[in-house]
Design a protein around this nucleic acid. Sequence first.
DNA 1: TCAAAAGTGTTGTGCGTACACCCATGA
DNA 2: TCATGGGTGTACGCACAACACTTTTGA
Lengths: 231, 231
Amino acid sequence: MESPKKLQDIKVAVDAVIFGYFDKKDLQILLIKRNIEPFKGGWALPGGLVLDDESVDDAVKRELYEEAGIRPDFLEQLYTFGNPGRDPRNRVVSVAYLGLVNPSYHELFADSDAEDAQWFSINKLPSLAFDHKIIIETALKRLRTKIQYQPIGFNLLNEEFPFSDLENLYKTIVGQEIDRRNFRKKIMSYGLLNETNNVKKEGSGRPGKLFTFNKEKYKELEEQGFYFEIK
Amino acid sequence: MESPKKLQDIKVAVDAVIFGYFDKKDLQILLIKRNIEPFKGGWALPGGLVLDDESVDDAVKRELYEEAGIRPDFLEQLYTFGNPGRDPRNRVVSVAYLGLVNPSYHELFADSDAEDAQWFSINKLPSLAFDHKIIIETALKRLRTKIQYQPIGFNLLNEEFPFSDLENLYKTIVGQEIDRRNFRKKIMSYGLLNETNNVKKEGSGRPGKLFTFNKEKYKELEEQGFYFEIK
DNA sequence: TCAAAAGTGTTGTGCGTACACCCATGA
DNA sequence: TCATGGGTGTACGCACAACACTTTTGA
C-alpha cells in the first residue's frame, strides 16, 4: 500500500444525494446551482473537495451545511466514483453519500459557491453536471432496497405523523401499491410506533391518530438482526 | 463540488480484502508482508496508490495481480476509509474492496513491493498495518450478510464440487450449524446446481456426486429479483 | 463388519397474503 | 347527507423448521 512510485495528482471530493419527502408529493432530491466553472449555471449534487484535516464524513456534513444549510437526519456512505474523466479539469475521486431529511424542518439557503439550492422531484430532474445522474440512480436503487429492510424512512417524516404519511412514503419510494391493512399490521407488530393522543387536524375526512417513532425499540430490534420486509 | 479553494494534499489508494476457502479449513484472508516503510516487515492488505490514468476498479485489480498474482473471481467495492491519521506519512483515502477467490486455482507470489504473500485464517490474523483490522472486520460482516442472499459463495469453490463443500463453506462463513436436509432442499429448489456424472474420489465414506454452478440460471433469477435466504 | 460421509421425506405451524366494509369528521 | 380519508378481521395456503434413519464406499 501507498508506495509513492510517482507523484499522484488526484483530488478527493464528496457528493451527497439528499432525499426529501413532502407529504403527497414525489420523492425529492436536493440540487444546487453552480456558480463556478465547470458547468457554471448548471445543477449538481451538493458536495466539494475534502479538506486536508477533516474526515470524509465530516466533509459531506460541512458541504451540506455550507451549501444548503442542511444537517441530514440520516447519512451514510453510498459508493465511491473514481473513473478518470468524471471531471473535465482534474482527476477527481468522489465519495458519494446518501442522506435523508424532512424538508419541513430544513429551510434551504445558498452560499457563495452555489447560486441556489432547490428540491427537485426525482421524476423531473434537470440535466446534471459531471456523472451526477449515475450517482442519483445508484442512490435511488439503494434507498429502494434499504427501506425494505431498515426503517430509515422515518427520518423523512415529521416527529409526529399520521399512519397514512408512512403509507404514502412507502408507496412513493418503492413506487407500487401496498396493502394498507397488511402494512399497518406488520409495522404495528414490531412495536416501532408509539401512539400519541393527538390527531391530525388538517384535511378532510376522519382525522388520523398521530404516532411517533420508537428509536429505542428500533435499536433493540436492529441488534437482534432484524429483517423488515414490505409487501 | 470541487471548488479548489486551496491546494488539497490527499492521496487515493485501494486496499483489498480477499477471502479464500480451503476445503475443511477456516476462511482465509490474503495478506502481504511489506518491505517498505512504514510498517516495513509487517503484514497488510494488498493494495496501493491509484494511478492518474486508471479507474479505481482497475487499480485494485492491478495491485492484486502485481502483489500476489491473483485475479479474483468476485470483486466489489466495500467502503471508503478516509479519516485523517490512517497513514502516518500523508493523508490517504483508501477505497476498500471485497474479493473472493478459489485458492486452489491461484498460486501466490510476491513482487518487489512485498516480500511475501500468504493466506491467514481469519481466526489467526497477525497484527496489521494501518487500519486494516477494521477494514477486514467490515469485509467479514459484509460477506456474512451478503452470502445469505446472494450466491457469491460459489466463487470460493472448485469448478466441480461435492455438495458437502458448499455445506461446509456456508457453515464456515456464517459460523453456525445449518440443517443439511433443509439447506440442500433450498439450494436444489432454485436449480442453481448442475449435476455431473463424476463423484468425489478422495476421503473416506460414501463418495458424493459432483456439481457445477449454473451461472445462467443465477442471472435469470437475479433479474427477477431473487432473494436467497439461508437457515 | 465397521467407520465415515452421502443421501433422503414428512409433518406441523406460523406468517404472509388476499380481500371489503364500517367509522369519524367537516362541509 | 355526502365526500373524504381512517381504521379494522379472517381464512387460506405455503414455505420454513424440526427431526433420524438408510445407503454407499473403503479399510
